[in-house]
């Protein structure tokens, strides 16, 4: 919102704080986050998974942004954090997947890890990774689109 050009014809609606919304969000947010994690972890054994869970977590970020303003939220959830979370998710997926190769298994063959319930933990790890990717990418896209664009010359 900051680099909004006054020349635009769009009507400027300054952000107003609403204590009802802020309080509600403050209360709900941890539960939403937990629910997101729950959905991610459940990818291994029932319906659920990283995509859905990640989307829920991202929804929480969006909710915070709407309640407290996009700027403050972004200061809290920095671009660096988003990148680290996204790449970290992919890397987690890759490492968990490549791990069995070192143990004479094939890619993503969790049972090669050898410990009890290895496939379950393997899938959960991967789902967490995917959740991190989805959550961070959606938040990142949201921030990117919210940022809008800068006007250049030759504007009509």
């Amino acid at each position: 919102m900051s680099n909004h050009n006054p020349e635009t014809e769009r009507v400027e609606r300054p952000y107003t704080e609403s204590s009802v919304i802020m309080t509600t969000v403050r209360v709900v947010a941890p539960f939403v986050f937990t629910y997101g994690l729950f959905v991610m972890f459940h990818g291994a054994s029932s319906s659920g998974g990283g995509f859905q869970g990640g989307a829920i977590v991202a929804a929480m970020v969006l909710m915070l942004a709407f309640a407290f303003g996009i700027e403050p939220t972004q200061r809290w959830f920095k671009n660096t954090a988003i990148v680290l979370l996204a790449t970290g998710g992919v890397l987690a997926f890759l490492f968990i997947g490549v791990g069995p190769l070192l143990l004479d298994g094939t890619f993503l063959e969790y049972s090669a890890y050898g410990f009890k319930k290895a496939p379950k933990y393997g899938i959960e790890g991967v789902e967490l990774g995917i959740g991190a990717i989805v959550a961070s990418v959606i938040s990142g896209l949201f921030f990117a689109i919210a940022r809008g664009f800068e006007y250049t010359e030759g504007q009509q």
Binding site: A86, T87, L94
Partner: peptide, 12 residues
């Protein structure tokens, strides 16, 4: 896998 890994590495 290697190129995707590299992509992430480059990003980080």
């Amino acid at each position: 896998v290697v190129p995707i890994f590299g992509a992430m590495l480059s990003m980080i």
